[in-house]
């Protein structure tokens, strides 16, 4: 049971402000994902919550209790490290038991918790091995097991899948989601991979440069990104951005083409459109002319790279297979309901 609240949290290393005014309320049982590019402060934020590091300003509360100065071990949290950080000289069993021995739990209780965790994670046959004798995926399970046996009030996971190969990452991702559903414990999950964030999260916190860009459910972020950064970060392939002008009720693309769309602004704006929301059109009615530069036929879908609206790159992904070739002149139709508009500061307009 735990609700984690951050209040104006800040962290500086000397003159470098790594985290700035983080306000966040993680409700009990939630699976919250911190996502953002490398170096944006995700790990630093997690470490403040864990108690491995002390914030420079602001408050951290767990179930209302101020824990800024509570040692890591007394916060009731468990952490899974990116490197797994298993004790290399101890067997898997000893790795799992270590924290419980520190808490002076009775032997029988320790054994039963280990047995239960080993069953849940299917690592029962590995208990007597050392971490050096395990595969990456097995080590990862042991790291999770070490967190589970402690019965924490919340799990903190720092890029737990980043050292696994692509296939294993996908299956482990699904297992983690199942594990969360089963335990119902609050989980904070850090990743730089937006697909991981989208598939796992109840809510996502998008971080950039130590600040929160947006908090919301995965589809909220996808459908209504609050700013250009979130729009570009969430979704693959990346959203297209076209610089254009606005005059209140129409968008003027460079090259002179206009799109009829009510725009609550005048002057320069950025038009965002996801590659999935652009289609090829048969005629030139209300469309944008473009020239194909590259075609990637994947079978199930076709990714078409084009130059449009005054030589700005624009990508579209079409379902199925299409006969398009590089150099071809095409007409593009934008899905009017899926246009995103951003002002010069990058904030959402519509």
């Amino acid at each position: 049971m735990s609700r984690i609240t951050l209040n104006k949290l800040g962290k500086s290393y000397g003159q470098v402000h790594v985290l700035k005014d983080i306000d966040l309320d993680i409700v009990d049982g939630e699976l919250m994902v911190f996502v953002g590019p490398s170096g944006c402060g995700k790990s630093t934020l997690l470490r403040q919550i864990a108690g491995l590091d002390r914030p420079t300003s602001g408050e951290i509360r767990i179930d209302g209790r101020l824990v800024n100065n509570v040692p890591a071990a007394d916060r009731g949290l468990a952490m899974v490290f990116q490197s797994y950080a298993l004790y290399p000289h101890m067997s898997v069993r000893q790795n799992l038991a270590f924290g419980l021995e520190n808490a002076r739990l009775p032997r029988a209780e320790i054994d039963s918790r280990i047995t239960e965790a080993a069953r849940m994670l299917e690592i029962g046959q590995l208990l007597e091995r050392r971490p050096g004798q395990l595969s990456g995926g097995q080590r990862q399970r042991v790291a999770i097991g070490r967190a589970i046996v402690r019965n924490p009030t919340a799990f903190l996971l720092d890029e737990p899948l980043s050292n696994l190969d692509a296939e294993l990452r996908i299956s482990t991702r699904a297992e983690l989601a199942a594990l969360h559903a089963r335990l119902g414990t609050t989980m904070i999950y850090v990743t730089h991979d937006q697909v991981e964030a989208m598939t796992l999260a109840h809510r996502i916190v998008v971080l950039r440069g130590g600040q929160i860009e947006q908090i919301g459910a995965p589809l909220e972020l996808y459908n209504k990104p609050a700013n250009r950064f979130v729009a570009g970060f969430i979704g693959a392939p990346r959203m297209n951005f076209l610089e254009c002008g606005a005059d209140g009720n129409a968008l003027v693309l460079p090259g002179g083409h206009t799109l009829n769309k009510a725009v609550p602004a005048k002057g320069k704006v950025t038009l965002g459109i996801r590659p999935q929301h652009v289609k090829l059109a048969a005629n030139d009615m209300g469309t944008v002319p473009a020239e194909v530069t590259l075609v990637e036929a994947l079978g199930s879908e076709t990714v078409v790279h084009t130059m449009a609206a005054g030589n700005q790159p624009l990508l579209l992904t079409l379902e199925g297979q299409h006969k398009v070739t590089a150099g071809e002149k095409v007409h593009l139709k934008f899905d009017d309901d899926r246009l995103h508009l951003f002002d010069v500061e990058g904030l959402r307009l519509n």
């Binding site: 040692p71 890591a72 071990a73 949290l77 952490m79 490290f81 950080a85 004790y87 520190n102």
Partner: peptide
């Protein structure tokens, strides 16, 4: 690795241990 010490810290390990 520093991580191992941090894991031990999360595990609530006394300095002597």
């Amino acid at each position: 690795p520093k991580d191992i010490y941090e894991a031990a810290e999360m595990d609530g390990t006394r300095p002597s241990r």
